[in-house]
Design a protein around this nucleic acid. Structure first.
Lengths: 254, 254
DNA sequence: CGTTGAAATATGTCCGGACAAATTTTGGGC
DNA sequence: GCCCAAAATTTGTCCGGACATATTTCAACG
């Protein structure tokens, strides 16, 4: 059996377990914002893990913006929960758009028919039968939904339906590989809107929350729409911070 | 002297040198998009480094979105260059906030007191009396409100109150000029939220609309908050479209 | 020819250790 | 009390190794 950080069976990697435990402690205020986490050595002792494993967990907490680390000083708690507070590299925003390769695609509905003009106003009226997929993207190793998606697949490529549920990676890329075609152009439209009724529940949000809506159209060399998608993201994932430091004072933690 | 990955003196960490070298190779097409990088073992041999060091470099390339790694498979090149499109888009989004120099500042309320912790959670509890200004920014030559602002001015700089209503330009800049101090650091936090009740009416919006919230803190050299502001923008000003016409690299757009 | 299962391959996880570099703390001198 | 140098502390970098797990390859089989 795998080594357990806390009681109960948990076959996830140790560093994920440690990260979650520390994240919970931070959220509960056991390590208040502004305070310092125990040193790596102390965490190694507590979890009976190697320094490498502990550092891996601390690195995840750093990327999540919960802590900041400084050589010679320690690990300081910067926020109690992700994405709401201040010092967070802009990199994280960029990473939000790289989710396709590393996430699970959980299909909840798959039908064929004409797309609703209100859902896909950009594809026009002259389209015929399409494959329409409703799915949730889940973060790797977690059950956290990244976005609720409605995907429209041109009938010519409806053959990928059988591998949508289990495959990984971007759908357009699999279409390219399987059918030997190439996406020539992608148009993306980003806006914010109230959380749609259909997306609130699967995303664990309410109608009072806000969604970031990302619409994409993938066009072939002939200009025809190969693929179109509407993605509703929980807006709080998009909060980000820019540190516009000008030659900051050395001792000052931002 | 440190071990050199390439010729010449370079005191940066090995994994940074390896990352840059691999990044250049990818950019030059030595490892084309879609191809696989050498295995970790091969890279260890080439650079005479440990696997840990090579993996650190590969991790950085992964975070940059240049490669994608899969257990059992290898490291696949996903893009020749970092995601310029998104970076560019973020920059333009940021430019939308460069309004301060060209807008009118319409003060509706000016008081002194302790800031509400819910409005300015980032300044902490230990602040004393501050100057608190509620104002609307109006587009130049128009009466269209750009955003609803709540500005917190450190008591030490409350003297600028008299010129707030008529001056132009960024407030922090005027504080710098008038008091001979310098802002050492600016931290900006962007998120979206439902339209706050107090901002809906002045902005001509309803509670069902969405607001883009921009929070800024201007810190002095000693780390003290000189100025803090919360700005609520009508979200529809921020919808925008990107044309990601692709040339060559098949990035991970999803 | 397709299928299955074993072997080879490649990355993921984890260990223990060593030294380097940055920061903080300590203590002596003024 | 303040300043400066030495010591202690803490994270950063790097090494070598081991086993686990996912994928690919390939030969044997039907």
């Amino acid at each position: 059996m795998d080594k357990q950080i806390s009681s109960g069976v948990d076959d996830r990697p140790q560093y994920v377990q440690i990260r979650d435990l520390m994240r919970d402690r931070i959220a509960k205020g056991q390590y208040p914002v502004g305070s310092f986490l125990p040193t790596e050595s102390e965490l190694c002792a507590e979890f009976t893990s190697s320094r490498h494993t502990v550092r891996e967990a601390l690195r995840l907490l750093t990327e999540a913006g919960l802590i900041q680390r400084r050589q010679g000083s320690g690990s300081r708690v910067m926020a109690a929960t992700p994405h709401q507070n201040y010092v967070h590299a802009m990199r994280s925003l960029d990473q939000l758009f790289q989710y396709a390769s590393d996430t699970r695609f959980l299909v909840s509905e798959m039908t064929t028919g004409k797309p609703e003009p209100t859902v896909f106003p950009e594809v026009g009226d002259d389209v015929g039968e399409c494959l329409i997929v409703r799915a949730l993207r889940l973060e790797r190793d977690e059950d956290i939904p990244i976005c609720d998606s409605i995907v429209l697949v041109n009938a010519a490529f409806a053959g990928i339906a059988d591998e949508l549920e289990h495959g990984t990676g971007a759908i357009y890329r699999r279409i390219e590989e399987r059918f030997g075609v190439e996406v020539a152009q992608v148009v993306q439209d980003i806006s914010v809107c109230p959380m749609p009724a259909g997306s609130a529940k699967p995303l664990g949000k309410t109608l009072q929350d806000v969604a970031v809506c990302v619409r994409r159209r993938y066009l072939g060399p002939d200009g025809a729409v190969m693929l179109a998608s509407v993605n509703y993201h929980p807006a709080d994932r998009f909060a980000y911070t820019m540190d516009l430091r000008r030659e900051g004072p050395k001792g000052a933690w931002s």
